[in-house]
Design a protein around this nucleic acid. Structure first.
Lengths: 146, 146
DNA sequence: TCGGTAATGAAAATCAATTTCATTTACTTT
DNA sequence: AAAGTAAATGAAATTGATTTTCATTACCGA
């Protein structure tokens, strides 16, 4: 059985892409910050700790490539910048986020509560769902307890 | 009973704001394009037809003010610009959008299919929902029929 | 009408993201 | 291992949306 990294290298090579040091470093940072929803700029900052010579454009190009091959997925928290996180191959859609309006914490929600919504929308609007993004705003448990 | 516009003027004045020609023009454009989900730049373009002297910054400031007082709401279609539409005072939350991945059409979904999700998330995560945003991607009826 | 505050327009500044381009790196073929 | 070729990179310039600055103008209450 191939290791996780070997798999990734294969996926890249199949598409004619290379697994460079820079790409490895970007992947490492995203992978080690699974719960942090880093923006591209933040990823750049983390990667620079290991590879100070890396360029910002490379990070932008890399996360976009990773998203194209399904390695990561972006989320938008409406603050004007893209954030990236590892994609779960088990999930057919993006998962959802709870955003605390006080502390800004982002809590992932894995379960898909929207299965019947897809059928509903198809019947009512003739719209075939391929993906969805749900962002829920509110107050997290911590902030509720002062 | 106060007219719609009188109400708006009152809401503005209560907050110490004024109802200027520019604000009236911006409101008119958003109001007359309820189904168009105009971006701020597009609103600017429309308003300029009536008030060529209006500045872009004024439009940006105006839509943000309108959102603050609850007159309009923004939606983000992840294309890097904010869009604004009239807020429906009947709705306690934002409504939802179906976005066709082929033609880009944005279809509004008024019904709130997520009421039970709020309770579920509160019980499971201790998270109190104040608002949510659901964006559904897929293929619209037109594009399905070639 | 006067005085003060809010609002405006134009231009400059910011900020995320993209593009350009010359250079470097990494596979593939000798 | 060396050469050839295409992909990848870094730095800098560019773009596009949005925000800020600042001098000027418009509005409201005394």
């Amino acid at each position: 059985m191939a290791s996780k990294e070997t798999e990734i290298i294969n996926t890249l090579q199949t598409g004619g892409y290379r697994f460079t040091k820079q790409r490895q470093a970007v992947l490492e940072v995203i992978s080690q910050n699974r719960e942090n929803h880093l923006s591209t700029g933040e990823i750049f900052g983390e990667v620079k700790k290991k590879y100070p010579q890396i360029g910002l454009a490379t990070v932008y190009r890399t996360v976009q490539l990773f998203e194209k091959i399904g390695l990561v997925q972006h989320i938008s928290l409406d603050d004007g910048r893209m954030r990236y996180q590892m994609a779960d191959p088990e999930e057919k859609h993006e998962h959802h986020h709870l955003i605390c309006e006080i502390c800004g914490e982002v809590i992932d929600v894995q379960e898909d509560m929207l299965e019947h919504l897809e059928q509903h929308v198809f019947l009512k609007k003739g719209f075939t769902v391929t993906n969805h993004r749900l962002t829920v705003f509110g107050i997290c448990k911590n902030c509720s307890n002062h």
